[in-house]
Structures are given as structure tokens and as C-alpha cells.
Computed example of a mutant assay.
Amino acid sequence: MTAITTGAAPTTTAASATKANPVLRVPPAAPAEAAAYFSASLAFHADVSDVAAALAEAVPGGDPGFVVIDTRSTESWDQGHVPGALHLPTAQIPQLAARLLDPAVPVVTYCWGPGCNGATRAALALSLLGYRVKEMLGGFEYWAREGFAYETAEGGERRDPDPLTAPVVADADCGC
């Protein structure tokens, strides 16, 4: 948007008024509404870096205060999963959750990645059963892409961090 400044509040030119700014076509929410939305989002989501940090701080044998649930198939689990995660495919949640989970312990679900809503479906199923639950953003894909160790049917593995998703310097903080 082109603005004319005269020391007073900016005004738009006729040319800029005919072409809407795609970012501001729908104006941002009021600050109080934005704070409520983003606060709620953080209540429902955790990112892989935070999950990894909490798990690392609890090791060895410590309790991070939550349980991580891999909601994928056995074949997917065998391909790679978060160390210490519990394997509970979404379809089996109604039958197995009460046997495997303590209702007092929060749950963090994950599936393949951002293109998969399996972790969301699992989180819904668990919340309907009375569990407090968060979804791990990025799923297993971003766990591996950020360079965190994972387990497979053959043993442990780790990939180099993808420089588009995480700092490549060991133990560097992304700053967010």
C-alpha cells in the first residue's frame, strides 16, 4: 500500500485503494482477541523442540509430567518413533486408553507430520474420554528433521538437522 506522509496520519492513494493488500484484506484481530486465540493455541499444541527439551530434562528415568503417544500404525511405528513414546494407534484409543494411560497425566499426541491430522483425531478421542491432551506440531516428520534421536525396529537413529527447520549447530537454541 502506498502512503503519502505529511507529518500527519498516512493516507492511501487512489491507486493503492483499488488494489487490496492481501495480508490486510482481513484486518488483524484486536489485541485482546489475538491474545485469547494465541493463548488457547498454546494450550492445545506443543512443538517438537519443547517436547524434546522436556524429555531430555527428565532423562534418565525421570518423569517429564506428560506421556507422548504415537498414534500411527505398527508399520509406521517400526519405521521410527520418539524415544519413550507409547504406541497407541488412534483406532485403538477407545479400547486401550483406560488400560494404558493415567487420567491425571497430560498426553501429547503425534502422527506423521503437518500434512496428517491423525494426531488431531487422537487428541479428540482422548479428550472425549476425559484426558488432558496437546498435539505435537510437526509430528514425527519434524522430530526427525530437527535432528532429534528416534527409535526404529532396528535400533536408534538420528539425522542431521534440516537447516530449514532447526539450527545446525549442536545444542543451539532457535530463539523462539
Rank of each mutant, 00 (worst) to 15 (best):
A91E: 14
T71E: 09
V51C: 08
R132G: 06
A53K: 12
V105P: 05
Q79V: 02
V133P: 02
E57P: 00
L128P: 00
G118V: 01
G175V: 10
H81K: 07
A53N: 07
P161E: 07
A125V: 07
G118F: 00
E157R: 15
V59W: 08
W143V: 01
T120H: 14
A85T: 05
R99E: 15
R132W: 00
A54M: 13
L101N: 00
E157H: 15
G175E: 07
V51D: 01
A29W: 09
P89Q: 06
G156W: 10
Y142T: 04
G61R: 08
A14M: 04
I4N: 07
S39N: 15
E141S: 14
Y150M: 06
G113A: 10
D171V: 06
A153V: 13
V59Y: 14
L128C: 03
A97N: 08
G80C: 01
A17V: 14
F140L: 10
L42V: 12
E141M: 10
G84Q: 07
L101S: 02
L124A: 09
G65W: 13
M136F: 03
R145T: 02
P94S: 03
F44Y: 13
T165W: 14
P31N: 04
T74L: 06
P28K: 07
T74F: 01
D171S: 13
R158Y: 03
V133C: 03
V108Y: 02
T13F: 09
V168H: 04
A85C: 08
P27D: 00
P22E: 01
L100T: 08
L129P: 01
A54Y: 01
L55G: 09
M1F: 12
T2N: 08
E57M: 02
V107W: 05
G113I: 07
Y37W: 14
A166Y: 03
A8N: 14
A85Q: 02
M1D: 04
P89Y: 06
L137K: 11
S76D: 15
W112Y: 12
A85K: 03
P64Q: 10
D162F: 10
G175I: 11
D102E: 07
Q79D: 15
D173R: 15
T12H: 12
R121W: 09
G61A: 11
V26F: 11
R159G: 01
C116A: 13
M136D: 01
P22T: 04
A125E: 06
D50G: 05
D162N: 15
A104R: 12
V59K: 15
G118L: 04
V169E: 13
